[in-house]
Amino acid sequence: MAFYILRRLLQAIPVLLGATFLIYFMVFAMPGNPALALFGERTPNPAVLAQVEARYHLDQPFIVQYLYYLGNVFRLDFGTSFSGQPIGETLLRTFPVTARLAALAILFEMIIGLAVGLWSGLRKGGVFDSVTLVISLVLISVPIFVLCFLGQFFLGYKLGWFRSTVSAGAPIQDLILPALILAFSLVAFNIRLTRSSVIETAGNDFVRTAYSKGLRRSRVIPVHILRNSLIPVTTNLGADFGILLVGATVTEGIFNVPGVGNTLYKAIVIGERPTVVSFVTVMVLLYLVVNILIDLLYAVLDPRIRYVK
């Protein structure tokens, strides 16, 4: 197990360096003066421009520039936004809100996904299964922002069940609707995955053997079928998290949730590039860390991985 963790962490290093390098490259190796590009459509005065150039070490060789940038990333030093606020501080302030929203969304997703997936997998080909299939396919096809508007319009405005925007401080009850919508954007795939792994597991020899031992159905289903199906579902959580990050940006923007995604959304809309790049960098790092954690969780769930030498 220790070796597995060590190996996984070592593998993450080149990916981490590569990913940050790639982002840096995209921003600073593009045509035109990168310092100028930072200001978008506005034209800065020469003094500010020189300041920016010095700040990003644009007078240094490319690789040195990258190393400076990397150092800044790890100190959460991303410079300041147009309004003069340190980007790192904004990040720290907004992060807990997004974490709460994401946790809530994943919780909803897992509960709905596992329950519905298990039920349709056990009754493959039945009415419930067929209806679920149709709903999942439609759900997969609806882009997240459409889903947000539908939720906002029907559940928030027409039915009045939820507030259609989130109030200051982002209390948990206001987060339920955006979290549900985020969950729904992910859940269809989760249902299908759970369903197919339940069917696959149920067809395994060891399930038959479990019955032959005299075990009751009520024990075989959770202990031998659902437990094993968790492995592929968990593995997929990593990819889900990537979609969740993008989804959070859109959802937080539309529902005005004061989180990381909303800040990114606003920065994109007003073309504030330093903030956009910093936030994307942080999200990518977060994505990498979450994926490492999920790989470790995977090892906990699957002893075959855990004991691989």
Partner: peptide, 9 residues
């Protein structure tokens, strides 16, 4: 490792 929409942004 970079979600493609984030990269595209």
């Amino acid at each position: 490792s970079i979600p493609y929409i984030l990269a595209a942004i």
